[in-house]
Simulated scan of single mutants.
Amino acid sequence: MNAKMDTTDACDLRFGQVGIACVRVRRVDAAALCDELERRVRAAPQMFARAAVVLDLSHLLNLPDDGAVDALLEAVRSAGMLPVGLAYGTSETEALAKRMGLPLIAKFRAAYEPAQGSAPAAEPATRAEPAPAVQREPILSAPPPGSMQGAQHHAGSVRSGQQIYARERDLIVTGAVANGAEVIADGNIHIYGGLRGRAMAGAQGDGKARIFVSDFRAELVAIAGQYRVFEQIPDDLEGQSVQCWLEGDKLLIAKL
């Protein structure tokens, strides 16, 4: 008797939001890059250890040669991160990516050019850092691209390991965001509960976006490509109702 042929597909292929961070290179110095990334990994190992990263060379005056790029990629690996591609740039960058056998990731471009928003004066948090560029596959459906739409609502808590992404709209969460959970929006984020995980507003580069939290205990907050990691919440902010916004390249946090 002939064996029955297995007609099951060998795999599924899907495109979605992915958790990839961005390393924006400002000078071609592999040793300095490794030292800086090692510092970031030590400061927030749960965030950055073995994080998938894209190398952005667009802010260099001249594109490095293949050997220099190899050294930068090895510096990222030595620091404990995993380079997975190059960020979108020029046709020369595309050719470089092909020679290096790396994918070219185009979606980061918007996050590199955040709009500059204005906001009321307040005491700033420490200087913001360039943000990891979001996102794992969202657990909620998102509307198609277009103009900013009405807010997306999530009733209840967001559990550890879950992510909510509101595309082209604000996000309102009427519950707590647990440690290890992420809430992301292209617009503003309103959390009517405790934030113990991560909140990232203005995900596509809107520097005017804000984050509002009823009970602030965050791991990370980010707006339009700038972020702040909290190893310890400042005493005057812990458990308080706060708002977060950008002023230039500084992420400001103030009690409501």
Rank of each mutant, 00 (worst) to 15 (best):
F216V: 07
V213S: 07
F212A: 14
G205T: 13
G205E: 12
R196Q: 13
A203P: 00
N188P: 02
G207E: 03
A199D: 08
Y192H: 15
A209S: 14
L220Y: 00
R198D: 02
I189K: 06
G197R: 09
R217D: 05
I184L: 08
G205V: 10
G207T: 02
I189G: 06
I223P: 02
A185L: 03
I184W: 06
G187I: 10
H190G: 13
F212K: 11
A203D: 12
G194A: 15
G193S: 07
A203K: 07
L195C: 11
G187S: 12
A201S: 07
A222R: 04
V213F: 06
E219V: 04
N188M: 14
Y192P: 03
I184P: 01
G187Y: 07
L195V: 08
A218D: 00
G202A: 13
G207W: 00
A201H: 05
D186L: 12
A222N: 02
E219P: 03
N188V: 12
S214R: 12
E219R: 10
D206S: 13
A218L: 00
A218P: 05
I191C: 12
F212H: 14
M200C: 14
G207C: 06
R210A: 05
Y192D: 15
G202T: 11
A201G: 04
G197I: 10
R217K: 01
R196E: 10
G194M: 12
V221E: 00
I189S: 09
G197Q: 11
G193D: 04
G194F: 05
H190Q: 15
I191Q: 10
M200D: 13
N188E: 12
